[in-house]
Design a protein around this nucleic acid. Structure first.
Lengths: 147, 147
DNA sequence: TATTGTTATACTCTATAACTATA
DNA sequence: TATAGTTATAGAGTATAACAATA
């Protein structure tokens, strides 16, 4: 059965509303550390090793100018360094500092707290199913989601 | 187990990213009809009968000035009428026109199509579980979600 | 005084296009 | 010519604050 009788009960609509709320709550927790939700994907990608900016943009799924902005902010926090690539001098390799690794661990903790808040009304089993279903949706819909 | 080792794998983060993508795809389908996702909650609430603007704002969970904007747009589409309340002349009762009812039915259909696209990679059982879990989250987290 | 609706304004997030420096 | 990064700008979307009309 694919026919719905309401819009607000569809996954598309609820996902939008809940996503907005979830991002807002996560942002509230990150703010005291100078971080914002969108920074987190960058921190996470860089733990694997240095990356060029355009590579980051493509993997995360945002436009290059947004990456410049995010990196400016994270650099100001001392979370990363831009290192000019000696082979191709157009490129800058972005590498995490020790502070950056620390901020990532903080972000992981705060994201976990946000999850507990959001999932409080669900059983552990439901929460696990939800987590898996969201992951499946992301990859099936071709939504960039590193990790 | 509540401790995560990644941010991008948390429900909070995935919900944000997926919500953004879901809203975008729904918006693409609505655009040819002059509608936007946020209009849908208004259309749906008004099918039950006329409502004052502040009542709409509170139920939907947006600030009053946003409601003014949405109603301006929907009025221009011929989807609704503002009728001054004779009892309390500060109030305007918003009522759906026949065209408004038609637009709502269209929105329901398009939301269903968006769901099929988003849930394509999931089994029917998983989709049902996801729908229920999202509904539970919305009410448990106190997120305004009419319907 | 308080409330309904409105306007003006600002802030966040994202995207596009034009620019620079390198290749 | 093409690519990596940057800047400038614009467009959604939302929120706050001040305002007019009415209670």
């Amino acid at each position: 059965m694919t026919v719905e009788e309401s819009v607000t009960g569809t996954v598309a609509f609820m996902l939008g509303k809940l996503g907005q709320a979830a991002t807002g709550r996560f942002a509230d927790r990150l703010a005291p550390f100078g971080l914002r939700p969108r920074h987190c994907a960058v921190l996470e990608l860089l733990t694997a090793g240095p990356q060029a900016q355009l590579a980051l943009a493509r993997t995360i799924g945002v436009t290059p100018s947004v990456v410049v902005d995010m990196l400016d902010e994270l650099e100001e926090l001392g979370a990363l360094r831009r290192v000019r690539d000696t082979v191709d001098r157009r490129r800058q390799l972005i590498e995490l500092t020790p502070d950056g690794h620390g901020l990532r661990r903080t972000a992981v903790r705060l994201a976990g707290e946000t999850d507990e808040e959001l999932l409080g009304g669900l059983t552990a089993e439901e929460a696990a199913l939800l987590r898996r279903a969201l992951g499946r949706m992301a990859s099936a819909s071709g939504i960039p989601a590193p990790g």
